[in-house]
Design a protein around this nucleic acid. Sequence first.
DNA 1: ATAGGGTTAG
Length: 580
Amino acid sequence: MGSLIQLHSSLFHKCNSLFQMKQLHAHLITTAQFQFCPSSRTKLLQLCALSPTAGTLSYAVLIFRRIGTPSTNDWNAILRGLAQSPNPTTAISYYRSITRSPQRVDALTCSFTLKACSRALAFSEASQIHSHLLRFGFAADLLLLTTLLDVYAKTGYLDAAAKVFDEMDKRDIASWNAMISGLAQGSRPSEALLLFKSMKEEGWKPNDVTVLGALSACSQLGALKQGEVVHDYIVDEKLDTNVIVCNAIIDMYAKCGFVDKAYSVFREMKCRKNLITWNTMIMAFAMIGDGYKALELLDKMVLDGVHPDAVSYLAALCACNHAGLVEEGIRLFDSMVEYGVKPNIKHYGTVVDLLGRAGRLKEAYDLINSMPMLPDVVLWQTLLGASKTYRDVEMAEIASKKLVEMGSNSCGDFVLLSNVYAAQQRWHDVGRVRETMKSRDVRKVPGFSYTEIEGRIHKFVNGDQSHPNSKEIYAKLDEIKFRTKAYGYIADTNLVLHDIGEEDKENALHYHSEKLAVAYGLISTVEAAPIQVIKNLRICVDCHAVIKIISKIYNREIIVRDRARFHRFKEGVCSCRDYW
DNA sequence: ATAGGGTTAG
């Protein structure tokens, strides 16, 4: 028997096609092991259930159904396979069956099913398993609790995750990591950084996974100072031998507006660059609007033996778009197919935007109609935006009509259409749009901006007066108003006129959140230090014009990251060259 | 009697 099992471990090892697995299955049956050697049987199940080869999982299910009374291990093997399959919900129904069968559930049964819940975004099922595992007496299982915490975080229930984390009587590095990454990925980056700090204070030594969570939080916040501290730690601890970590560092500098720093990390990294490294760097150049650098990297990655994928092309197209490289973008789009990369709706969206910004509305419209897939809301919004820029009422109406048909309730869509009408003095139509907005209860997404000063984040909304230094900020804004006027700046009041939102005086152009953040930056940083601002929406036209002048008259570099890209203001000009 | 489970970049 011993020699047979030995023979089988090597057989199991080499088995990677469905055909071979079937042969192995037949062998186990003819030697009676399938019936009398449960461990071999479970091994076969595991092999089939976990193999990435197509069809093997259904074969595993077939084998499983032939077993009279499957052991807990047999159940676990099937659950594990189903959990990582494209239909993780199947695992959840299998879990229900096992709880109804006389078979015992162990910690692994819960673990694999929780994984399935995570992939299926099944929060209530996960919380059911939570109560089960307490009943079964697994409450001290550190690995299981970490899985549970992670599922809660990934299904969007960060408070439930935090409760599990807080109540764990023992933690290890992985449980800390799961909570930190959970917060970072759940868009609560400030809390992720706070937890990262308390972890260090409690004497834990962050590892590669920990720093990934921390870097992701810094990227989201644009928190350069804190990101640099993490980078230094990474270098000291030699964690930069890990590509994943290097990629996260590059992304962090890029998202903080420091492409040059990102590029030097990219060039000097000691480990081999992978697809994501290249894509991250191309995206970094796209965000700052350096189209040629992005295109150059796309060529270089091929020379380096890394094949560009859909994301690489999307990033490069985005770069062409932000740099106004219209012909290059169109050529790139056409060449994608030749390289065997199929354009998806995002690629079409970028090219529509590219054509739209260049005023080639008809071509953009034709491209939408020629797409092999159904256009989404974003495409029509893009076309509407371009119609507004080029005051094309006809096209704006086409796009708006489509948006209404698709049930869009986005404030921006209505505002754009109204702006198009207003530019033509069609006040009756402006009123009509306003009525529709009222009846549909369309609300604006509140804009906010923030800036990091000495490692602390200061957040502002429009007309914000809640900051402790509010008085000084408003005094600075008055000074800015005076000095920009003296410089020759005249506010474009049309912007206000066309804005059909609630016209509170406080919400007027002059107290936009990005201006408040810039003013605070000016009074709270040393001269010549660059000011960084991050905004959740696109930067407003008036703010863009004013910040350009501020960069000149105060001799400051100001970097604004908005929803779509970076604007680097220096000596009166912006890196986007007003093309955005 | 045995193993198998958790955290990870664009």
